[in-house]
Design a protein around this nucleic acid. Structure first.
Lengths: 236, 236
DNA sequence: TTGCAAAATTGATAAATATCAATTCCCTGA
DNA sequence: TCAGGGAATTGATATTTATCAATTTTGCAA
């Protein structure tokens, strides 16, 4: 089922997957000349908030959560980045430390581009800077949306939204099967901004209502339409 | 009282005030050649979410709230922009419609720069694009912080934070007097993401605790230190 | 396989927040 | 200056969400 016209999925996804692909060949070459690969196991941290950025990351394959940890150790997931997306450019561009941390949600392959190569290419390239401006501006839309949702919507609605968004991320384009979302209850709760228990209870409710099934920690989405109704984006 | 070392105020402010000032003279000239001025009365809308951007706005003097209105008409204030800040560039750069609306919180003077002049200058200028990349990346930090706070902190903490942030915005550098914050309870509630009644009750609590006084709708901050304690950023 | 530790689930209850209703308190324009 | 109306405040209560305490289930590693 496509979400087109039913749910504003573009307001929940960044758009950096398009950057590397659309770069003129010579700029791509400059950028990737010294790119090294790096394998992350599930749960491994790519970078940690408060540290100084050393490079730009490219998700060759996998899923990476971006999150903040507050003083009480509570984790808030801001975004889940997928294959093809870039990570870690904000801190380089703003010349600040990482505002958030990044860790693999599943086994992932990451390309690491040295900070200098990134900045150098940026100097010499109109396209890269144009595309970054565009992506960063789009991210603004995404984050502003998140703020409204966190500030105003109920936990149940936020869970529904999280499931719709995750479903897109876990979708296998080659398959017609219902999408299987594979994240821990803990990560799900940290995306939704609530406790594990609440999330579990609402999941059960959704299950009873026929929107999804669970199989261990895996969540199989059966009826996105109903989830969209619940999310508050119904009859958009 | 300065917040340095006590509260991360930079994580709550965008940084576009620096852009126009630091632009090379010829680029500034190109940008402002066709700038027209526009006077906004308190409450007047500068642009509305979902509409197509026509230009870039510069706050010559005043305060402008950026907010989203959801389906139920509930308003969420995302940010309060102050004198010197730029507005409305995201939608132009991402080639999307405005993700949020903007309205004057007080009588304001706005400079309007045609979209074409902005894009043209951007084409020809390294500085402008560099500074925008930096500002946009910093905004990411600000918004990510907001998300964590909305998702995890209590209304009381959020109110304390809102007051600390507003105090900075309403500060008169020429005066040593305690800062007077002049916003409606409604706007304050929409910043905090709660109802007016809750905000009023917590304000009363803060007042009783000696952190502030009220005078009609005006809020006079007496003890930021205590507010910082309450905000959850105490002993940062 | 099996046993175990971690993760998920369930239940009960406390705490926070939202909502509805009713006053009271300002501003502002006549 | 004063009356009217919107804004702010207060009170009472419903609803949502968080938290604590047990179980039960799962996924691994031996």
């Amino acid at each position: 089922m496509s979400l087109a016209g039913l749910f504003p999925i573009d307001k929940w996804n960044f758009s950096t997957q398009f950057i590397l692909n659309n770069l003129p060949p010579e700029e791509y070459a400059a950028l990737s000349a010294n790119m090294t690969e790096l394998q992350l196991k599930k749960g491994e941290v790519l970078f940690r908030q408060g540290t100084v950025p050393q490079g730009l990351f490219f998700i060759i394959r996998g899923k990476v959560k971006k999150y903040q940890v507050n003083r009480n150790g509570k984790e808030q997931i801001i975004y889940v980045a997928n294959t093809g997306e870039l990570l870690g450019y904000h801190a380089i561009l703003s010349n600040e430390r990482y505002p958030d941390s990044a860790a693999a949600l599943e086994e992932s392959t990451i390309g690491l581009i040295p900070k200098e190569d990134f900045l150098q290419t940026l100097e010499n390239s109109g396209s890269l800077s144009r595309m970054l401006l565009k992506s960063l501006s789009h991210e603004f839309t995404v984050l502003v949306n998140s703020i409204s949702v966190f500030a105003q919507r109920s936990v149940k609605e936020r869970l529904a939204i999280a499931l719709i968004v995750l479903r897109e991320k876990f979708k296998d384009p080659a398959s017609q099967e219902p999408v299987v979302i594979d994240v821990s209850r803990n990560d799900l709760a940290n995306m939704v901004g609530s406790g594990i228990e609440n999330v579990v209870r609402f999941l059960k409710e959704f299950k009873t209502a026929g929107m999804l099934d669970t199989k261990g920690r895996k969540i199989i989405i059966r009826d996105v339409g109903k989830l969209i109704e619940l999310s508050g984006y119904g009859s958009l």
